[in-house]
Design a protein around this nucleic acid. Structure first.
Lengths: 137, 137
DNA sequence: TTATAAATTTGTAATGATTTCAAAAACGAG
DNA sequence: CTCGTTTTTGAAATCATTACAAATTTATAA
């Protein structure tokens, strides 16, 4: 699916900036921050403002076109991959990994008591394989 | 268990300030922020510094005596309730609720592929029952 | 106890992500 | 094209958190 189709699917008007941000997130596997998104996109769109990146991401998140990852307290990461999955945050290198996550099991965990669930986030923190093997040396 | 015992259990020296923070979190069911913890404790300990609250919480989290909740990107909440449970964040009122969470099912979701898991966080966002009934009026 | 070292606390200043806001620019309907 | 609406922009303000060095408290040993 193209970025344009993705935006339309969520009822978001496709401006140049919105398309660029959406496109960027769809291509990215690294869960970028606002800073990273801005730094890369300003190369393509020199007039781009960081505020626009913030506005756009807020809009995308509000319409569930992308997911906000708030594992690191300080700054938000964004994820354009919308299928169900969990995340792993490495305490050593700071990278965030996508993890498989069985949807059926995840669903059985949902509380059933009058709360309306709009989104679910599951994440782990610890040490990734790479940092682990570095430590063993 | 007393706050003092709790600290000792995690190998943390019990200073007046640390005891106060630990005690506060053990009594609290509302997942307070640094600001809230500080504002309340400074009444008891007038010389208390906000930096100390930060230091103490960092220490408690590093030793797993409390959990840091990072649902809201902007600021961290803290949870002194150490049994396994998930959280629910209400998008409307901003309150964070404790939710039951079946440990066995949560465990089956864990990825088994070389990642060393040190902590697990599961949370939902949506509308709480109270805000839901307000909206229906 | 007393001296000394180590751990902890404190307050201020700096940092950095995010928000606010009003003006400018782009867009869309008639 | 023109008017009204939406979107973007940039600068300034806000707010949580971190850095850091001085001051205080606590632990240790003579």
């Amino acid at each position: 699916m193209t970025a344009r189709e993705h935006l339309e699917k969520y009822g978001i008007r496709p401006s140049v900036q919105r398309l660029a941000v959406m496109q960027y997130l769809m291509n990215s596997k690294t869960h970028p921050t606002v800073e990273e998104i801005y730094a890369d996109l300003v190369k393509e769109i020199p007039t781009l403002s960081k505020t626009t990146v913030y506005n756009t991401l807020d809009l995308l998140v509000a319409n569930r076109a992308v997911t906000q990852i708030t594992i690191e307290g300080g700054k938000a990461h964004y994820d354009g991959f919308t299928h169900i999955h969990s995340h792993f945050y490495c305490n050593e290198c700071g990278k965030i990994f996508d993890m498989p996550c069985d949807e059926k099991h995840l669903r059985t965990l949902e509380p059933k008591n009058g709360f309306i669930i709009e989104s679910t986030q599951l994440y782990y923190t610890g040490i990734c394989p790479e940092c682990r093997s570095k430590n063993e040396n």
